[in-house]
Amino acid sequence: MADAELKQRITTAMKDAMRAKDKPRLGVIRLILAEFKRIEVDERIDLDEPRILAVLDKMAKQRRDSARQYTDAGRTDLAEQEDFEIGVIQEFLPAALGDAELNTIIAAAITDSGATSARDMGKVMGLVKPQVQGRADMGAVSRIVKEQLAAQA
């Protein structure tokens, strides 16, 4: 099975960082590729595009959480490192969805799934998640889905 296009882009970015002797950027890209390799070895699979986006999204979320904790603890040096890593990871994620686009996707998923109450949230999230993975914060998406389902009830 051929490597996913996004994975090839990340590998090319690693080679570019090596040539440019950009050690901080190279370190982050190597972390990304190491996580891909770990998952492929542990699960004995080749990562496809949606799974790669999910991994990148998870890595960015972990770093946002860490940066927030470092900032709260007064460790701005470590928070800045996390912010730098977030920036590199986000280069490989698709452009973020605007509020209008996100609301449209969620409304369509509610209609398609026939959801009528908060009990149907799983059905709606099942339809929404593949469309917004890596392009929106899933916590915010979940909150919007709850609000729209509550407004329908």
Rank of each mutant, 00 (worst) to 15 (best):
M125P: 12
A54P: 10
D46C: 06
M125I: 15
G98L: 00
A2K: 11
T11K: 13
R51P: 02
S66G: 06
R51W: 03
G122S: 12
Q90C: 08
M18K: 05
K61T: 03
E147H: 13
F36K: 01
A79L: 13
A100R: 15
R143Y: 11
I29W: 08
V28A: 02
L102K: 01
E49Q: 08
T76K: 13
L33V: 11
E82M: 13
I110A: 09
Q133C: 14
G114I: 01
I144T: 15
Q152M: 01
K58W: 09
I39H: 04
L33P: 03
V128Y: 10
G139K: 00
M125C: 12
G126N: 00
N103E: 01
I89P: 00
I106R: 07
T12L: 09
G126C: 08
L6A: 09
L33M: 02
A4P: 03
A13F: 05
I86F: 03
M14Y: 11
A109Y: 04
R51E: 00
E43K: 15
L26N: 05
V141C: 14
I10T: 04
M138A: 12
R135K: 13
A140M: 02
Q133V: 14
G98R: 03
R143I: 14
E147K: 15
D42M: 01
E40C: 05
A150T: 15
D120M: 14
G27T: 01
G98T: 12
G87M: 09
R19W: 04
K37P: 10
I105G: 03
